[in-house]
Design a protein around this nucleic acid. Structure first.
Lengths: 181, 181
DNA sequence: AGGTTTTTTGCAACTAGTTGCATAAACCGT
DNA sequence: ACGGTTTATGCAACTAGTTGCAAAAAACCT
């Protein structure tokens, strides 16, 4: 039950239309909470119905029918409540690890190529994160907000680094398990 | 679409009843692909209907009686196909990182305690993994199967280690962001 | 023997996320 | 002005996972 809270956070950072939100979910926010535009529009409707957000009166004669939303006090209160409330970590699911385990039984045929591909994807993601870090968190900016946001980004960077390294090790000593048909 | 493959893998490692599977999903397999017993029974039914597994003839089934399943050749083939097929990584979602980002906007009140709690949970998980490593992967066992399984376990160990460290850093320099009501 | 509790199996309803497609307006080249 | 593309919004159906509950056999106690 976190998509509404992701949206509230995004809207507090900057009031936006559905499409703007979609774009922001494709970059920064979506790195740890992804969402499609369909999900976003559905959720915007709910949040508005609940009185957590409202459509901004169209200030400028913007292109199209862009409808921007802003967070109402009730929405901010709900977000604060949710942020402070304890939450258990969700059980994780990792298809790649599962496939390795399956490969131990049915053979490693075809795996290596996909491991390489995944490593490449992680490398790209890492490069993107590092780009953002360089751009948005220059040394010396130590406002509380920036520190928190940087902390989150660093988690992303270190996780990608971990996966690249782990995949490299895996590829180095990937044993050949014969298919057993 | 991976639960059936997780179950096939588990059943190939060792034919089991629904309850046995449930237990094994609570420990080893569930560490990277969790499932409830309801999910497992539902999926067992599907897999049987598709001819991927069958109930072992040993004990004839009635309600409340253990029914063990084994994988049929079609099931093994499907698992091999799935293992070798390229798959894109799923977008990840991490509520804790999202909460940090929200906290940058609505304040860090109440967060610290939960960060500590999460760190404790990760420490316990790490201890469990290390226990398993000591028990199941003594140095010197270098069969191909063991190497693959160890690789997967090491990913778990290193991820838990990462989170403990990251949470420690986060707690050390968690800035105080005042609530902004 | 009779009742309670635990084990094992499973259905049904709900929630969250994904996929496919629809609509309308704006903008763009000819 | 016309037709094609892009922008912006959204509905509906589907898939996967979660939660709540319960029936049937077995085990456990008086």
């Amino acid at each position: 039950m976190s998509l509404p809270h992701a949206i509230l956070t995004a809207l507090l950072e900057k009031p936006s239309s559905g499409l703007d939100l979609t774009r922001r979910f494709d970059r920064s926010i979506g790195y740890f909470w992804s969402a499609t535009h369909q999900q976003i529009y559905r959720e915007l409707g709910r949040l508005e119905a609940e009185g957590h957000i409202r459509a901004l009166p169209a200030a400028q004669p913007a292109r199209g029918q862009k409808k921007a939303y802003e967070v109402l006090p009730a929405g901010r209160a709900e977000l604060a409540r949710w942020t402070a409330a304890p939450q258990d970590p969700k059980p994780h699911r990792d298809a790649l690890l599962l496939r390795l385990r399956a490969a131990a039984v049915v053979g490693t045929a075809g795996l290596e190529a996909d491991l390489r591909r995944h490593r490449e994807l992680h490398r790209r993601q890492l490069a993107e994160y590092e780009e953002i870090e360089k751009r948005d968190f220059p040394p010396g900016d130590d406002s509380a907000q920036a520190r928190l946001q940087h902390l989150v980004l660093r988690a992303g960077i270190e996780l990608e680094t971990f996966w690249i390294q782990w995949l490299t090790e895996a590829l180095e000593d990937l044993p050949v398990v014969e298919d057993t048909p």
